[in-house]
């Protein structure tokens, strides 16, 4: 028992030595190493291209609520990376999430053992009324977060998580509340089809998968960014359905 802890400490120490080594390397000429904290040089990173919203040519000045018809018309640069420049990456990520949710459902339903639902059997009046008020408000907050994903912090992942939290609360408080398996499947696959369909339409009309084919509008307006808002809404529905499915399988296991 003691020997194992000692062995673990040795392994951790070796690991720590290797990590700290990476911070002390002196770079040779033309070599890039880890920068000091707070001194990241964006001018020689890819990020500067994304910030200037002009990957294919030289940099251009963008002014909030004035510039229009840009390459990616989203005011939130993280959103334009997630849902436009690297949206193929996001498609893969959503697929991993789907596989994990499917895996959980399969593992928990392998053999039919006796199932007991984890929920309040006789909820009090205060809990019932509180959930009745909070549930639509949480759905509204989630929708606000993902619709404004290209203007303010937030987006599909956060909005989907808030929606899944709303369903989690409802399932915990209300013993009779059931979400049909079919409706989760329907929302999830419809959102996936919208995502892939947008990508294929961009491939056919513009020549590359998931290319932005709508007008991008003026930076900072609600209707701007072209396909970014549509893709983020699809991501929100997909993430919300998948996280709800994970929570549902765990509650009903």
């Amino acid at each position: 028992m003691k020997f194992r802890n000692f062995l673990a400490l040795i392994i951790v120490a070796v690991f720590a030595f290797i990590i700290f080594q990476a911070f002390t390397i002196v770079p040779a000429a033309g070599e890039i190493t880890i920068n000091k904290f707070g001194q990241a040089d964006l001018s020689n990173r890819t990020a500067s291209r994304y910030i200037n919203k002009n990957v294919n040519s030289d940099s251009k000045k963008v002014i909030y609520k004035e510039s229009s018809n840009l390459e990616s018309g989203s005011a939130n640069i993280v959103t334009s990376v997630v849902a436009n420049y690297r949206s193929f990456d996001t498609l893969g990520e959503i697929t991993v999430l789907f596989l994990a949710a499917a895996g959980i459902a399969i593992v928990l339903n392998l053999e039919k053992s006796e199932k007991s639902r984890f929920a309040a059997k006789e909820a009090s009046l205060i809990l019932n009324t509180g959930i009745k008020i909070i549930f639509p408000l949480l759905l509204l907050a989630g929708a606000y977060i993902f619709i404004h994903g290209h203007l303010s912090p937030g987006g599909g992942f956060q909005g989907g998580a808030v929606i899944a939290t709303a369903f989690l609360l409802k399932m915990l408080a209300d013993y009779k509340f059931e979400i049909k398996e079919k409706s989760i499947t329907l929302v999830e696959s419809a959102a996936g089809i919208v995502f892939v369909g947008l990508g294929l339409y961009g491939l056919i009309t513009r020549g590359s998968f998931l290319e932005n084919f709508l007008a991008t509008g003026t930076v900072g307006e609600l209707f701007s960014g072209g396909t970014i808002a549509v893709i983020y809404t699809a991501i929100a529905f997909k993430v919300g359905a998948e996280l709800t499915n994970i929570v549902k399988s765990l509650i009903e296991a």
């Binding site: 002014i63 909030y64 609520k65 005011a75 939130n76 640069i77 303010s152 900072g220």
Partner: peptide, 8 residues
Amino acid sequence: PILNSVVQ
């Protein structure tokens, strides 16, 4: 990294 009415 968000353009808004302060960081224009």
